[in-house]
Write a protein that binds this DNA or RNA. Structure first.
Length: 626
DNA sequence: CTTCTCACG
DNA sequence: ACGTACGTGAGAAGT
């Protein structure tokens, strides 16, 4: 046994690194003593990387500890060590982890401890931290990772041991990314870092629990968030099947397309289409006038600027208003194809597991509003205007992809919270929400059809209301003249005064209560300083997320969770056996249908086909009409 | 590491 | 007094 005393700031602890059977039996004795004392034991793991499902990934260390001690079990040194770690995880009845879904999936996949067995015993400090203050450090919050939380709640001297560790990685010729797999388990900085995490998480727990109780965070909300985290982990474990052959060909096509247009751009002196500096200089050199600037004063050359120069509208169709600028056109096309190839298609091939599945990382508290975020690859951001990227994701043999999405969930939430009786009544009668509001706003009689352009404008304004948008932003979004948008906004407020009234009320309440807004689920959301007007956006977004969470709980209770393969804010995706698909997606949709105060929340279930792309082969508005 | 751009709901 | 579009992840360039 290697026994060491570590210090960090004002903290001191004993570190035990087990080397043989005798050490492991000492460890087991320690586990039993903790269990007898009713202690909550801190748990963490060190691995070769973050790609839990990619071949080559290894579990290296499992750490257990409390406020003063840390035990390091080198799982990679063989079966005896793995058995001891597995036994401890099963034997202990109360565990605390920081970001438990990560370690939970590692233990599930690489140590033989099922997620469902571990979960009832787990408290995740990240969840508690999010419920007390969901802001990141750079947003003015305490932060949500272990080091800033420890520095704030435990000891200001709880420094980031990663700096020291990365220096060690460099010393052995590795980087921040590759060092985790290469570093010697005996390395003192590595062991100290590994030990610190379980000590810190153990010390953090009582502080966060106290903070939660001071703030009145309901235990039921804490339990609900832990359940959601487990559901997210189960979906992540299930993964999505990639059509590898198709995806490889798509990468090639997109890369060729990117290169073809990059060649065009080079003819105009732009060596790199991704360089705004080069693009703006070349466009100015061609005689184009660029007026928009970025935050730092440089000339902006984003899509919004380039599309009109290329004589293209938002859907990339020719406008016919001018001679297209060939450079603007080439830059737009090269950048788009390049991004799709790299960030989406190639990213899928780079994160395949042994069975041809990807397992995008799900963070069930990704956003300040508690919305989920998904990364590696970013499955919530795949292009929706084109089916080719989503086509990479396919159903297993004899299965199909199905989806059920909420119908205008954020707007329904807003209507209910604002007590907009007209809208609520319209929704509950089963009328089309946007048709209904368009009639109200523009005074279109029942016996006349709703003009599509007015419907679109009204839809945009409704969403703008939920996001606390103004005339300028909406004008930019729709491309309509500012005056027309202003007029429509005024008409909307006249026809549906409850919405504007509620936004004003929320803003005032937020200011009165120290820039916070409380959701119906009991979540306290802190707003950015000087942005009390965003209260409505936070409330709508966060409440819609909680409704999705409720639906997922109901889906699990109905035994349908094993079919769920993805979640995109307001839609739930499933893999279903062909012959049961209609029935299964209908049942998923039923779980999503629920009342929210006075308003009906409804879903739109459908079967796409053998690939996710099948749902995107004709434009969404065309499908809607069907 | 920051800035810019762009993909989604 | 007035008005403010919300929330993410990712890659490339530039410092």
């Amino acid at each position: 046994m290697q026994t060491t005393t570590d210090t960090m700031g004002g903290l001191t602890w004993k570190r035990y690194f087990t080397e043989d059977e005798a050490d492991l039996s000492a460890f087991c004795q320690w586990v039993l003593s903790q269990e007898a004392a009713g202690a909550v034991v801190g748990v963490d793991s060190e691995t070769t990387g973050l790609d839990t499902f990619v071949p080559g990934f290894r579990l290296r260390l499992v750490q257990f500890g409390n406020a003063d001690e840390a035990w390091l079990i080198p799982a990679e040194r063989g079966d005896a060590f793995q058995r001891a770690a597995r036994w401890a995880l099963r034997r202990l009845s109360r565990l605390v982890l920081q970001n438990a879904p990560f370690d939970g999936l590692v233990f599930d996949r690489h140590l033989g401890v099922p997620l469902d067995e571990l979960w009832p015993k787990v408290t995740d400090t990240k969840i508690l931290a999010h419920l007390t203050d969901s802001r990141q450090e750079h947003e003015g919050g305490v932060g949500l990772s272990l080091k800033p939380l420890s520095a704030y709640y435990v000891d200001p001297g709880a420094e980031d041991g990663q700096r020291e560790l990365v220096a060690e990685f460099r010393a052995i010729g590795h980087t921040k990314g590759t060092g985790w797999a290469a570093i010697d388990l005996e390395n003192a900085a590595y062991q100290r870092y590994a030990a610190a995490d379980v000590v810190l998480v153990s010390r953090l727990l009582p502080k966060l629990e106290q903070r939660c109780s001071e703030m009145g965070v309901a235990p039921a909300l804490v339990a609900y968030e832990h359940r959601i985290a487990r559901i997210g982990a189960v979906i992540e474990r299930r993964g999505m099947r990639v059509d590898v052959e198709y995806t490889r060909a798509l990468v090639e096509d997109l890369e060729a397309e990117a290169e073809r247009y990059a060649t065009v751009a080079r003819r105009y002196g732009v060596e790199s289409v991704n360089s705004p500096k080069q693009v703006s200089a070349a466009l100015v050199g061609m005689g184009e006038t660029l007026t928009e600037t970025t935050d730092t004063g440089a000339l902006a050359v984003g899509k919004e600027i380039l599309l009109p120069l290329a004589d293209l509208d938002r859907d990339w169709n020719r406008i016919g208003a001018r001679e297209p600028n060939k450079l603007a056109d080439a830059v737009l096309r090269s950048k788009r194809a390049g991004k799709w190839a790299t960030s989406y298609a190639r990213a899928m091939l780079d994160s395949l597991d042994a069975d041809g599945h990807i397992h995008p990382k799900i963070n069930t508290l990704g956003a300040r509003t508690a919305r989920w975020s998904v990364s590696g690859p970013p499955l919530q951001q795949l292009p929706s205007s084109d089916w080719r990227i989503r086509r990479c994701i396919v159903a297993p043999p004899a299965h199909v992809v199905g989806a059920a999405d909420f119908k205008q969930v954020e707007l329904r939430v807003l209507a209910a919270l604002a007590n907009a009786k007209d809208i609520v009544a319209g929704i509950n009668r089963g009328e089309d929400l946007h048709d209904f509001t368009t009639r109200l706003v523009f005074g279109i009689p029942e016996d006349e059809p709703v003009p599509p352009r007015q419907r679109k404008l009204c839809k945009t304004i409704s969403l703008g209301k939920a996001y606390a948008g103004g005339a300028v932003a909406l004008s930019r979004q729709t491309g309509l003249p500012l005056a027309q948008v202003k007029q429509a906004l005024a008409a909307y407020d006249r026809a549906l005064p409850a919405i504007a009234q509620y936004a004003r009320y929320l803003t005032k309440q937020a200011q009165r209560h120290g820039m916070v807004v409380k959701t119906p689920s009991g979540r306290t959301l802190r707003l950015s300083r000087d942005k009390s007007y965003t209260a409505i956006a936070y409330l709508c977004q966060s409440t819609a997320r909680d409704i999705l969470g409720q639906a997922l709980c109901d889906i699990e209770d109905a035994g349908l969770l094993p079919y769920v393969m993805g979640v995109v804010h307001d839609e739930i995706l499933i893999y279903a056996p062909e012959d049961e698909a209609d029935e299964l997606i209908r049942r998923v949709g039923e779980c999503m249908d629920m009342p929210f105060f006075t308003v009906k929340i409804e879903s739109d279930p459908e079967i796409y086909g053998t690939s996710w792309g099948d749902g995107y082969k004709c434009p969404p508005e065309m499908r809607y009409a069907a």
